[in-house]
């Protein structure tokens, strides 16, 4: 491997060493290289600057760049770990690592908590959950009476907010997902186990000696 020297890396600011990234994540070096193929295709879809901006992530998720979406924005904010307004390759790999089937459950629980704690207060509050429910209804063009939304919120907080203080803290979230494991289903991407066959072209671009894997 490594027969062809890639010339594209210079266009990717913040492109981190695949060996380094593999050592920090559940991915092998080959898998990090395969993820680079995915990263390249997403990061060049609107502006070919080697970074993923919000519009490019929207486009990759919805195949439609015009569709503003609360949840896609939230995912973007969490992937943009350095809060630069763009996702570089290192951010991308480290965030996707949480979604790896072998990633620690604890990381998945913490990530999902942050995802739903829209205002970053350290609690998932009722008005945040209501905001997300309304966003979901708009997205799916479903209509529910406000009364029904309030009933869903009552039921949710009855079950999750065990100390009944009106907000869900991290330990309550921990217990709630333990009782409702299906809530973490979105936190695992089976594709990540098989990434080298999904994006096989990395083989031709690899700069890494197989021996390093």
């Amino acid at each position: 491997m490594g027969c062809f020297q890639s010339t594209s890396r210079k266009q990717f600011p913040g492109h981190e060493d695949p060996i380094q990234l593999a050592s920090q994540t559940a991915f092998s070096v080959s898998e990090v290289e395969a993820l680079f193929e995915l990263f390249k295709s997403i990061s060049s879809s609107v502006i070919d600057d080697g970074l993923i901006n919000k519009e490019e992530l929207q486009l990759a998720l919805f195949k439609n760049r015009k569709k503003e979406n609360l949840f896609a924005n939230r995912i973007f904010d969490l992937f943009d770990a350095k809060q630069k307004g763009v996702i570089d390759f290192g951010d991308f790999v480290r965030a996707l690592n949480v979604f790896h089937p072998n990633a620690p459950q604890e990381d998945k629980i913490n990530f999902s908590f942050k995802l739903y704690d829209l205002d970053g207060t350290g609690y998932i509050e009722r008005q945040e959950v209501k905001q997300m429910l309304i966003a979901l209804l708009c997205e799916s063009e479903m209509k529910l009476a406000d009364e029904t939304i309030e009933l869903i919120l009552d039921k949710t907080f009855m079950e999750a907010d065990t100390n009944q203080d009106g907000k869900i803290d991290k330990s309550e979230w921990h217990n709630f997902v333990a009782q409702n494991p299906s809530l973490l289903r979105i936190m695992t991407l089976p594709y990540l186990r098989d990434i080298t066959t999904t994006f096989p072209s990395f083989v031709f671009n690899s700069e890494v000696d197989e021996i390093a894997t």
Binding site: L38, I42, A60, L61, F62, K63, N69, L70, F71, A72, N73, R74, I75, L96, F99, L115, Y116, V129, M132, L133, A135, L136, E139, S140, L144, T148, L151, I152, L153, K155, T156, E159, A160, F176, N180, S182, L183, R185, I186, L189, P190, Y191, T198
Partner: peptide, 27 residues
């Protein structure tokens, strides 16, 4: 419809396509 009340809010929210990152892998 009374059906959604039997679900908790997070089960509903987690059906959003914006949270479904598997779309990233669809070419």
């Amino acid at each position: 419809s009374a059906a959604p009340v039997t679900m908790n809010a997070f089960e509903l929210i987690s059906t959003s396509r914006g949270l479904n990152l598997s779309s990233l892998f669809e070419k």
